[in-house]
Amino acid sequence: MAIRDDFEVVASQVRTMVQRFALGLLVIASFGAMLVGKADSVLVEHARVLALDLASPVLEAIARPVAAANRAIADLKEFASLREENARLREENARLLAWQTAARRLENENERMRELANFREGPEASFITARLVGDSVSAYVRGALLNVGRKVGVASGQAVVTGEGLAGRIAEVGEHSARVLFVTDVNSRLPVLIERTRERAILAGDNSPRLRLTLLQSVAGVQRGDRIVTSGHGGSFPVGIPVGEVVETDQGSVRVRPFADFSRLEFVRVVDYGVTGLVSGGTTVPAAPPAGVRIR
C-alpha cells in the first residue's frame, strides 16, 4: 500500500513538472499568435474569413432554434405590456398615416421638379436580404454574422440597413458569410449629415448604445430631435439613409440614438450601391442570379 502511495506521489510530481514545462511553451505560443496577428493583419483577416466560413453552416443550423427561443423570450416580455403596446401602436399608426399623406404629396412634387430640372439620379441601389446567423457582440465588439457572402455579391464596405435605418457596414466577407460592424462599434466612423441644417459631421461609435457626433463645425446649430442621415461621402453608402436622432447636446458633446434596434435584429438588407463594383473593376458583380432575394 505504502509503495503504491509513493509511486503515485512520484508520478504526480513528474506529471506536474512536464505540465509546468508545457505551460511555458503554450504561453509562448499564444503570445506568438498575438504578435503575428499584430504584425500581419492580412493573414489574420484571411484566418478570420476562413473561420467564419467554417462556422457559418453550424450557426445557420442553430439559428432557427435560437430564433425560436428569442421569440419566446420576446413574447413573454410583450405579454406583460400588451395593452400599453396596443394603445401606443394605435397612436403611432394615426401619426404615420398623416405622414404618409405628406410623403405622397412631396414625392409627386419632387418628381415633377426633377423633370423640370432634368436631374440625373445616382446609381440605383439593389438589396441583398440576409439572415443574421451569429452575433459578434462582446465587451469589445459590436457586430454580427450574415449568411450571405461574396457568392451573391456582398463586398466589404457595403451598407447594412434595417427597416428603421442604418445598422452598420460589411467589414469582412467570406464565400458564404460576412461580418457586419455595427455603427455602435468603437471602430465605426461614419460620414453623416444633419438633416435639418445639412451640416456635415462624423458619427463615431464607442461600444455604448449611444453614438457620438464629432468633427462638427459648430455644436450650437444642433438641437435635440435632429435626424442624422448618411452623407454618402467617401464610399459605397447611398445618401440619406436615416441613422439616428440627436438625444443629448451638452458641453460640446452630441449624443445620437440609432434608429436600428440592435437587440432584435433577425433579417437585414445589404445595400449594393454599385460603386464598389466600379472601383474593383466589376469583378464583384455575380454572373448568375444570386441566391439571396433581390428586392429591387
Binding site: 503554450l26 504561453v27 505560443a29 499564444s30 503570445f31 506568438g32 499568435a33 498575438m34 503575428v36 496577428g37 499584430k38 493583419s41 489574420v44 484566418a47 478570420r48 473561420a51 467564419l52 462556422a55 451569429g134 459578434s136 462582446s138 469589445y140 465588439v141 457586430g143 467589414a171 469582412e172 461580418r179 460592424l181 462599434d185 471602430n187
Partner: peptide, 16 residues
C-alpha cells in the same frame, strides 16, 4: 478570438 472578431483585437489572448 478569430470568430469573435473585432478589427485590431488580439488573436490568441483567449488561448493564453
Amino acid at each position: 478570438d478569430l470568430l469573435l472578431g473585432g478589427p485590431g483585437a488580439p488573436v490568441g489572448v483567449s488561448a493564453l
